[in-house]
């Protein structure tokens, strides 16, 4: 099983990645494999956080990488030195499209997905109850707040990169992140209270 992403991250915005990108754009499969290894799981995690469906999240990730390959080969990648923000902008847009589609044709039940993934050894990092509470709390955030937190942790992006992806000044982004995290903390505390606002069966919580 592949390592869960605490995998070392390349200096992806620096010059180190540039030769890899150039080689990949010339059809070098080993360079392309390296890019896939570095970023596939992060893109997948971002999609999975939003969509709660591993199959669809994988489809999204594949689609993002297909776009990426086509752009690299076709000369569509022009943002030298800003590869990660570019990649995650594509991923975010693709995920948003999928979310819109899901709102029109809902097919997935979050609680089912959580139940299906519970019990895996690597998931012992968080107790299942806490996972459920966190999912609920994240669901209470606005899309904008949620996006900051997810891009940062699932996408493993720096604040500077986040500012690039979201098109906001760094100071604004830091304030927004702080506010989003404070909201998340309040929601988690609320969900942990023993007066009936705790976890309900099926992973649903009462607000």
């Amino acid at each position: 099983m592949n390592a869960v992403p605490d995998t070392p991250k390349p200096e992806s915005d620096g010059a180190e990645l540039t030769p890899v990108l150039i080689a990949a754009s010339r059809g070098d499969e080993s360079a392309w494999r390296r890019i896939v290894d570095l970023y596939a799981r992060r893109v997948f995690a971002l999609a999975q956080a939003r969509l709660r469906n591993p199959e669809v999240a994988e489809e999204i990730a594949q689609s993002v990488f297909a776009t990426l390959a086509a752009k690299l080969v076709g000369g569509g990648y022009t943002e030298r030195g800003k590869f990660e923000p570019w990649l995650f902008r594509i991923a975010s847009n693709r995920i948003r499209d999928e979310q819109r589609r899901n709102r029109r044709h809902p097919t997935t039940h979050d609680s089912e997905r959580i139940a299906r993934t519970e019990g895996r050894p690597e998931e012992s990092v968080l107790p299942p109850e806490q996972v459920t509470r966190l999912r609920w709390a994240m669901g209470q955030l606005t899309d904008a707040d949620r996006e900051v937190i997810e891009l940062r942790h699932h996408g493993q992006m720096s604040f500077a990169q986040l500012a690039e992806v979201l098109g906001e000044p760094l100071g604004t982004l830091l304030a927004r992140h702080h506010r989003a995290l404070a909201k998340l903390k309040g929601l988690l505390e609320q969900s942990a209270q023993p007066d009936g606002t705790g976890v309900r069966a099926g992973g649903r919580l009462e607000a």
Partner: peptide, 19 residues
Amino acid sequence: LQETDAIARRAARLDASSA
């Protein structure tokens, strides 16, 4: 907020591992 931040980070790992 560090604790909340750490929870979010662990949740990200969880999502990444669900492939």
